[in-house]
Design a protein around this nucleic acid. Structure first.
Length: 594
RNA sequence: GGCGCAGUAGCUCAAUUGGUUAGAGUCCCGGACUGUCGAUCCGGAGGUUGCGGGUUCGAGUCCCGUCUGCGUCGCCA
């Protein structure tokens, strides 16, 4: 090692000792005579002092130091003069008096420095990621990530899980998300697909008798990005044999308890809170509700059916819903203009036809442009149902169940953040269970698997597969943390006949089944144990544990919204020769990324 | 694919309703300074206002298109 100590470890106990430090120049304070450098490495900052009595040569060399130069300094540790300790610095009681200085490498003037207070634009940070990653916050987040993954792996190892790597080059399965494709050189015209998840491989591992499988698995989905979604992301992928939902949930309960304790030093009570999918949608309008606060959705269908307001009445007559939420104390901040903006957003985003609102006045009466269509009794009933008090703003959506869910969920989410209805430091873990097996695929007018096509129905729903597939519920469970889907899993179908029936419902005929999943159906016929598992979104869990609102800050080298890597400029054009070998002809010429 | 926000000096931002030579801080360069820790002080350099059109006597500002980044809807088994 070029160094004897790190920049974070020297303290008053080292006074008088000689040491060698290496690191980056974080800041320079040049007084002409005496010269201070804050030297930085992964472990911290140490103030290095260059005194004239160290000699002209070293003083002159120290004068050349600039931000982000990499240096090696030999010197002695000295207590700082009386009254000059820096309490903000772990090493603030001492300083490092340099006797030798070597510039290991210079740096160009950086476009931004890791220590600067104002964060530069994210595009610049991504372009110069090597500088951005030097920032303390990025370092602490990646260290946190490393600790979380270690805790997960330790927990799995303690519970007899076997870590198995599965292929990155796989086969395209057109179900689900768009695949990233890799052309084959040997078989021109054929393609591998990068895995959306190791789903099938881990099921095969169960059939092969490995009993408990785990993998920190990179997954790829070629869909549009969000603040919490990247095209490649990391899952803790788990599968277990001879289990039912309770066993998998119980295993993950224990893991979350350990994570919360080890990482955040908080104690969480087990079992974790549990909601059914139907309950979550009814009460919160979403399958991953933030349970750190209330503001639950209230159905006023009974009142709406009786009132004179045509929109409400008509909605109920058509078999749809009138539901609303109470924005506690929001009347003061929500002017007519802001309510209009809210209305526009639910119209634009979710196709709601409008947003009805009532303001609870000082005297307890309800003010609203539509109040005249309601009797006094009806207004009072609304007040009671939503628990309205003076200053509250009641908002209602009259629409299909789905539109009311999406609209009210978005309002609830917005208000939760805006009115600080929860402690941002609080962590809330819960499960949402019993998802529907299928949802309507409007584009193709057929059923689509809500989770994936290998999901087992609840035992009591087996018979419904034939006559009422929309009613059948799955042995599916999602882990929800603070309103984010942090993971999800299912018990799988281990019976090839049921599997084939589900494939059939999804619109695959026998031939298609054999072509796409013949190997799985075969495997199921060779002694498949009951099995199930789940996958945890590691990037999201890191984001939540770090208190961040953006998944890119939890990934060392993330991609932009258009899936570019701004540093390497991937994706990019390739040489003509490479294309020829792959038998690929580009019909639309593109310029390299700039 | 839709909607929205942003793009001005290396960086972070400002620039009145469309009006003089586009400013400030920081960074950079030079100088001064022996106890700072966002060092300070003096001087200097630094601009195709993302790009392309248009309107106008005049455009950073208004209009159209386009590129890039971010948020969001669709999408994400």
């Amino acid at each position: 090692m070029l160094r004897t100590h790190t920049c974070g470890e020297l303290n008053i106990d080292h006074v008088g000792q000689t040491a060698t430090l290496c690191g980056w120049v974080d800041t320079v304070r040049d007084f002409g005579g005496v010269n201070f450098i804050d030297l930085r490495d992964r472990y911290g900052l140490t103030q290095v002092v260059f005194n004239p009595d160290a000699g002209d040569e070293i003083v002159s060399l120290a004068g050349k130091l600039r931000n982000e130069f990499v240096i090696k300094v030999v010197g002695t540790i000295r207590a700082r003069p009386e009254g000059q300790a820096n309490p903000d610095l772990a090493t603030g009681e001492i300083e490092f008096v340099a006797s030798e200085l070597e510039i290991l490498n210079e740096s160009l003037t950086p476009p931004f420095t890791p220590g600067q207070r104002v964060l530069p634009g994210e595009d610049l940070r991504l372009k110069h990621r090597y500088l951005d990653l030097r920032r303390e916050k990025m370092m602490s987040t990646l260290v946190l990530r490393s600790r979380i993954i270690k805790a997960m792996r330790d927990y799995c190892a303690d519970n007899d899980f076997i870590d198995v790597e599965t292929p990155i080059l796989g086969r395209s399965t057109p179900e689900g998300a768009r695949d990233y494709l890799v052309p084959s050189r040997v078989f021109n015209g054929k393609f591998y697909a990068l895995p959306q998840s190791p789903q099938i491989y881990k099921q095969i591992m169960m059939i092969a008798g490995y009993d408990r499988y785990v993998q920190v698995a990179r997954c790829f989905r070629d869909e549009d990005l969000r603040a919490d979604r990247q095209p490649e992301f990391t899952q803790l992928d788990i599968e277990m044999s001879f289990v039912d939902s309770e066993d998998v949930i119980g295993m993950i309960d224990g893991m979350m308890q350990k994570l919360a304790k080890d990482i955040l030093d908080i104690d969480i009570q087990l079992p974790l809170e549990r909601l059914t999918y139907d309950e979550a949608m009814t009460r919160f309008g979403h399958d991953a509700p933030d349970l750190r606060f209330g503001m639950e959705i209230v159905d006023i269908g009974e009142i709406a059916a009786e009132c004179e307001f045509g929109v409400f009445k008509g909605t109920i007559d058509a078999g749809n819903f009138v539901r609303g939420v109470n924005g506690k104390g929001a009347a003061a901040t929500y002017s007519r203009k802001r309510i209009d903006e809210l209305t526009e957003s639910v119209k634009d985003d979710f196709g709601a036809k409008g947003l009805a609102w009532f303001r609870c006045e000082e005297d307890g009466s309800l003010f609203s442009p539509i109040a005249k269509f309601f009797t006094e009794d009806q207004l009072n009933a609304i007040k009671t149902k939503l628990g309205a008090e003076p200053g509250d703003l009641l908002m209602f959506i009259a629409d299909t169940f789905e539109v009311s869910c999406k609209s009210l969920y978005s309002i609830r989410k917005k208000f939760g953040a805006e009115f600080e209805l929860y402690d941002p430091k609080q962590m809330h873990f819960s499960w949402v269970v019993e998802f529907p097996m299928f949802e309507k695929d409007e584009d193709n007018d057929r059923w689509a698997a809500m989770h994936h096509p290998f999901t087992a129905p609840l035992d009591e729903c087996l018979s419904e597969l034939d006559d009422a597939p929309e009613k059948s519920r799955a042995k599916a469970y999602d882990l929800v943390i603070n309103g984010y889907e942090a993971g999800g899993g299912t018990i799988r179908i281990h019976d090839s006949q049921i599997q084939q029936k589900v494939f059939g419902l999804l619109g695959m005929n026998e031939q298609e089944c054999e072509e796409r999943f013949g190997f799985l159906l075969d495997a199921l016929r060779y002694g498949a144990p009951p099995h199930g598992g789940l996958a945890l979104g590691i990037d999201r869990i890191v984001m939540l544990f770090a208190g961040l609102d953006n998944i890119r800050d939890c990934i060392a080298f993330p991609k932009t919204q258009r899936a570019n890597d701004m540093m390497t400029e991937a994706p990019n054009v390739v040489e003509e020769k490479q294309l020829r070998e792959l038998g690929i002809e580009i019909t639309k010429k593109v310029e390299p990324l700039v």
